[in-house]
């Protein structure tokens, strides 16, 4: 079994540990691939679908779950990727109720980073239908608020609670567009470790100053 594998990403020859995912290998070599649900502390879930790259003869795969193989040729940018990924980010932005100016997560927000990276054109976003109703804030947790209007449902918070703090105090509820994270109000098992808040890539979980 080889310990190291070498592969090519965007023309760059890179050597990484065997078992590294394409996304991790790229990030370690300062190549940014759009992503929201990936977090280095957690198992890759492939849920946000943004980290799609092209391998070999043009096959599209989610780079967070694709282990690097020896001799693999990866392209992180191509017209094919651009065509399908850009609309997904535009969809997210159209759906994201918030003005960055008043958001506490501004400047360390993964969505802002994505927008800058893809140079999102607001005119294209305006072709989409914006949500008409704003969902109420969930303020039932004693130490943080949850804003479903900013949540991208990356799942990092519940994965953190499940696999790092091992409490599983929060989970998905609902289906389709009305899917939310539930905190179970006064029945919550939350131990207020705030690990989920720390890892929220956007401004959906906000610590409350008590």
């Amino acid at each position: 079994m080889m310990d190291k594998v070498s592969f090519t990403i965007d023309g760059l020859e890179v050597v990484v540990d065997n078992g590294t995912s394409v996304l991790e290998a790229a990030l370690r070599n300062n190549i940014y691939i759009p992503h929201l649900c990936y977090h280095p502390d957690l198992e890759a879930r492939g849920a946000c679908r943004l980290c799609i790259v092209e391998i070999g003869g043009g096959e599209l795969v989610t780079s967070c779950r694709m282990p690097v193989e020896s001799g693999m040729v990866v392209k992180t940018k191509s017209p094919k990727i651009e065509k399908i990924i850009r609309p997904v980010v535009e969809l997210l932005i159209a759906d994201h109720h918030a003005s960055c100016a008043s958001c506490p997560s501004s400047s360390h927000c993964e969505l802002q980073k994505l927008m800058a990276h893809l140079r999102i054109d607001r005119r294209r976003v305006r072709r989409l239908r914006l949500p008409k109703v704003k969902a109420p804030l969930d303020t039932t947790n004693p130490c943080f608020d949850y804003d479903p209007n900013k949540c991208v449902l990356c799942g990092i918070c519940l994965q953190t609670c499940e696999s790092i703090h091992r409490v599983s105090a929060l989970y998905y509820v609902g289906r389709g567009y009305t899917t939310r994270i539930a905190f179970y109000g006064d029945k919550s098992r939350c131990e207020s470790c705030r690990e989920c808040v720390t890892r929220c890539p956007v401004g959906a979980l906000i610590s409350r100053k008590t």
Binding site: A47, P87, G155, Y177, T178, T179
Partner: peptide, 25 residues
């Protein structure tokens, strides 16, 4: 389909809803 999406991935959750909204318009 937009009602029955499981909600975990962005394109299906938000994309089918958006397509529905455009069709509704």
């Amino acid at each position: 389909t937009q009602r029955e999406s499981c909600g975990q991935c962005i394109p299906c959750r938000v994309g089918t809803k958006q397509m529905f909204s455009v069709l509704d318009d």
